[in-house]
Amino acid sequence: MEVRTIKVFTTVDNINLHTQVVDMSMTYGQQFGPTYLDGADVTKIKPHNSHEGKTFYVLPNDDTLRVEAFEYYHTTDPSFLGRYMSALNHTKKWKYPQVNGLTSIKWADNNCYLATALLTLQQIELKFNPPALQDAYYRARAGEAANFCALILAYCNKTVGELGDVRETMSYLFQHANLDSCKRVLNVVCKTCGQQQTTLKGVEAVMYMGTLSYEQFKKGVQIPCTCGKQATKYLVQQESPFVMMSAPPAQYELKHGTFTCASEYTGNYQCGHYKHITSKETLYCIDGALLTKSSEYKGPITDVFYKENSYTTTIK
């Protein structure tokens, strides 16, 4: 009895394709271990004539594949690729409408935090270190965002349907971005203890939790000093293409032309909904596939993004 075979390709990165001759009487799992086709788990399936010449994702289970996976995804987590594939199996079914010149995501599976993050990423200057993220990001900007969303979920250790947080998501993504040249110098002034300067680099240099107003941050924000008295913390120097200011959701007025974009969060910790506000020729609110415009805006804002380049204080 002759062994019926077909020729397929296996890959971990969709760049390096490895030619395989597979036995049609055995499952993919018996031949390769966990195997995925377009995100779908085909591990328990036997090869079919229609699979001839198709590319299958496999887990990096030998040295060659491990090197290829690390170079593309910059992670050695053995569960990463499987999590990416199972997320992709959902995100490829989502709709990605162009809204006001940006790629958004039609609401499904509690994905409003991903839509808000995706919209924000198209408006701030950011370059990702893992080629996987950078490639998928370019495709997302062009309207094909399924891979990018699935990668975000995998890097953030999230599953489809789980509630997510924009600030946490951005923080994970910033860790995989090139923020080497970003720098922030802060000064804390206390009447009792004097003053202390701190220099922050990388992710810490672009994120701040405690106030939404970048102007206020430049002037000074009140913080408790270690001595128990009130101290003032203010920005001395900022070198970065953008800054992200966050605070627990509270009524906040966004003035046209003073910011790049913002995240609105309605609801409580267990259950809520994100919308995205962007400042173009007027203010726009993007909620999944829905767009509304207004000249002014007041609502429960939790993150505001500002364009920056270089700032030095005039406070002496």
Rank of each mutant, 00 (worst) to 15 (best):
Y252D: 00
P34T: 12
A142H: 14
G101N: 11
A289E: 12
D62F: 05
S104A: 09
D165H: 02
G33E: 06
K233I: 15
Q134S: 10
S104H: 04
G288D: 00
K255P: 07
L290W: 11
L121S: 07
C261I: 00
L212A: 04
Y138D: 15
I15G: 00
A146D: 08
F305R: 01
K158W: 06
Q197I: 09
L163T: 15
C112T: 04
A69H: 08
P34L: 13
K201Y: 13
M170F: 08
N178D: 11
T192N: 13
A69T: 10
G161N: 07
P241S: 10
Q238I: 01
N129A: 12
L65Q: 07
G210F: 05
F32I: 12
M26D: 13
L153Q: 03
D38L: 09
K95I: 12
K293P: 12
F259N: 04
E204F: 06
Y274A: 04
L17F: 08
T232A: 06
Y284Q: 13
T226P: 12
M170Y: 01
H176E: 05
P249G: 01
A250P: 02
A231I: 01
A231S: 06
V189Y: 11
Y274G: 00
A154H: 02
D135C: 07
Y306N: 02
L126M: 09
V22R: 04
E308W: 05
V206Q: 02
H74L: 15
Y73C: 03
Q251L: 13
Y208S: 11
P224S: 13
C225M: 01
C285L: 12
L133Y: 02
L200T: 11
G288L: 00
T266D: 12
Y274K: 01
S213F: 01
N110C: 01
M245C: 14
K218M: 05
T35R: 06
V21K: 14
C193V: 02
L102N: 02
Y208A: 11
H18G: 04
K275C: 10
T103Q: 04
E144K: 12
T292Y: 11
L133C: 05
V185F: 02
K293C: 15
Y113W: 07
A140L: 14
M207I: 08
P130N: 05
T103S: 05
Y284T: 12
F259A: 00
S213H: 05
Q175E: 11
V99D: 03
D41R: 07
H48M: 13
S25K: 08
K218C: 07
T258D: 13
V236Q: 07
L186T: 14
T292E: 15
A132V: 03
P78Y: 09
R83H: 07
S294L: 15
T76R: 09
V203L: 10
Y274D: 00
Q20T: 14
G272T: 02
Y113G: 00
V166E: 02
T91R: 02
S246L: 01
L283A: 01
G194N: 00
Y28D: 05
Y269G: 15
S181W: 07
P300V: 15
S294M: 12
D38R: 09
H18M: 06
H176G: 01
G161K: 06
Q237W: 07
F305G: 01
D180T: 10
D165M: 07
L179Y: 00
T232E: 07
T226A: 13
L290P: 00
D180V: 07
L37K: 11
S50P: 07
V185W: 05
M85E: 01
L290M: 14
V8E: 05
Y172F: 12
F259Y: 01
Y172L: 14
D135Q: 10
M209V: 13
S50Y: 11
H18Q: 08
K95F: 12
L17Y: 09
T159C: 13
D135F: 08
N111G: 01
K201S: 14
T19D: 12
V185L: 06
S25P: 06
Q123S: 08
N111I: 03
E264K: 03
K44P: 11
G143P: 03
L179W: 07
S295K: 15
M244Y: 03
E68T: 07
S310Q: 14
A136N: 11
H256L: 13
K93C: 07
T11A: 06
Q98Y: 09
L173K: 02
R184H: 03
T292N: 07
L163N: 06
C190M: 02
Y234F: 09
T159R: 15
Y214L: 13
G257P: 01
I315Q: 15
T10F: 12
K183H: 07
S171P: 06
L290A: 15
K316Y: 15
C227H: 00
C149L: 11
E125M: 05
R4C: 15
F32G: 07
Q237M: 11
Y252Q: 08
H74R: 11
V12P: 07
N111Y: 02
Y252S: 08
Q175L: 09
L133M: 07
